[in-house]
């Protein structure tokens, strides 16, 4: 019975922190692609996955159960409840900024990859390491 209770608590802990666990997994997947994949396009995909993991982490960190948007003019709650019910806008603003930046970074990486392919005919990072031997 006690074992069951422990297992249940553990499962609950995992479920409650599922967002953070998924965020960590995404960052680790992205790091794997960044460090071990030799194709430049796959590395770009890895960096995009890392950015997604960080977005998920930021949004999860700012989550409040039953929270409302921090807009006072359109709030459906009393002004006295604002401190306890409204969510913190900073993580959301940071996430929005990160989405835009990661989009720009992805576009830059892919355009560089296209130019590299046009110039050298390869996307293999190990071959690009010695450009004078190509």
């Amino acid at each position: 019975m006690l074992e069951n209770k422990k297992a249940l608590l553990f499962a609950l802990l995992i479920l409650q922190n599922a967002n953070f666990l998924v965020a960590i997994c995404l960052v680790l997947f992205g790091l794997y692609a960044l460090l071990f994949k030799k194709n430049l396009i796959k590395m770009a995909i890895g960096i995009a996955i890392i950015a997604s993991g960080i977005n998920l982490f930021l949004i999860s960190a700012g989550y409040r159960k039953g929270g409302v948007a921090p807009i006072f003019t359109e709030a459906t709650i009393k002004a006295s409840e604002a401190e306890t019910r409204m969510v913190l806008p900073t993580p959301q603003a940071l996430t929005l900024t990160n989405i835009v930046i990661s989009l720009a970074v992805t576009a830059l990486m892919l355009s560089l990859a296209i130019r590299i392919y046009q110039q050298t005919g390869t996307l293999d990072a190990t071959k690009l390491g010695r450009l004078d031997e190509l």
Binding site: L31, L35, L40, M43, L128, G129
Partner: peptide, 13 residues
């Protein structure tokens, strides 16, 4: 300085 971008990424990490 190997010139391989994966190594630079590893240094960064």
């Amino acid at each position: 300085h190997t010139g391989i971008i994966n190594d630079y990424a590893l240094w960064y990490v």
